[in-house]
Design a protein around this nucleic acid. Structure first.
Lengths: 115, 115
DNA sequence: CCAATTGTTCAACAACTATTGAACTAAGGA
DNA sequence: TCCTTAGTTCAATAGTTGTTGAACAATTGG
C-alpha cells in the first residue's frame, strides 16, 4: 500500500534543491541516509518539530520525489528514493549528505543528549 | 576592488541549496560553470530577467557564497567560487551542474534562438 | 561639465513558506 | 465497542521570496 509519488523522470532538480534547502528537511534526509537499513516511521523525527510540522515537511519531501512513504498499519514507513535520485542526479545526494555531515541539527534524532 | 563576500567557512549548505533551488539562479550558475574561462558581467544574463531582477538574484548568489563579484569600471565581473565550494562541499557543484545540464533555461543565454 | 552606460536601492505587492492548534481519519488492541 | 496510537487536513498567521518600475550612484567618454 503506497500513496502518490512522482515518477522518477518527473523529479525536478530546482525543486529537489529547494526542498533540501530547509534545515529540518535536510536533517531528515541525512538521518534517512545514515539509517537506510532500518525502516523509519514519521514519529522518528519528532525531535525535529511538531507532529503537524513533520507531516508538512515529510509531504514536501515525498512530493519532490526525495522520499518514499509506505503505509503499514497506522504508520508510514519513510525511505530515501536513493536509486531513482542517483540515476537522475548522479552524485548529488552523496555530496549533499556528506556535506550535511557537519550540520548541528543532523544528529539530533540519533544521539545528542549529554546534558 | 571587491564588494562584501562571505568567508569560505561561513558558506552554509542549506543556504546554498535553497539559493540554487531557484531556476533563474540555477541557470546563471550553470552558465558560469560552462564559461568559467570568460569573465562575465551582469548584463550577460539579461535573457534571464530584468536588470533589477538580475541584480536581486546575483546578490543572493553572492551573499550565499556561490559567486564572486569584482568591480571593473562600471561593470561587475561575476565568477563561481569553484575552489572554495569544492573544498567545502566536495562534488556538490559538479553534480548540480551535471544534473542541470538537461534544464531548458540553462542554455538560453548562450544559443537557443532558432525561430 | 553633460550625457550615456552599468548596475544598485527603494517601496510596493502578490505569492508562497513554515509553523501552530484544533479537528479529523484510520487501524489496532482492550 | 470504545480507546489509543499514528498521522493528515484545515484555517489562520507571520515571515519570506520573487518581481516590478522609479529613482539613484558611479564610472567613462564627448
Amino acid at each position: 500500500m503506497t500513496l502518490p509519488h512522482p515518477a522518477a523522470d518527473q523529479i525536478s532538480l530546482p525543486n529537489v534543491l529547494s526542498v533540501l534547502g530547509d534545515p529540518t528537511r535536510l536533517a531528515i534526509v541525512t538521518y534517512l541516509a545514515r539509517n537506510a537499513d532500518i525502516p523509519q516511521s514519521c514519529s522518528q523525527f519528532l525531535d525535529y518539530g511538531s507532529k503537524t510540522n513533520l507531516s508538512y515537511h515529510l509531504a514536501k519531501l515525498r512530493e519532490a520525489g526525495v522520499t518514499r512513504a509506505e503505509v503499514v498499519g497506522t504508520s508510514r514507513m519513510i525511505s530515501l528514493r536513493r536509486t531513482e535520485l542517483d540515476a537522475r542526479f548522479p552524485g548529488l545526494l552523496d555530496s549533499v549528505i556528506a556535506a550535511a555531515g557537519e550540520l548541528p541539527l543532523a544528529g539530533a534524532a540519533s544521539a545528542s543528549r549529554d546534558d
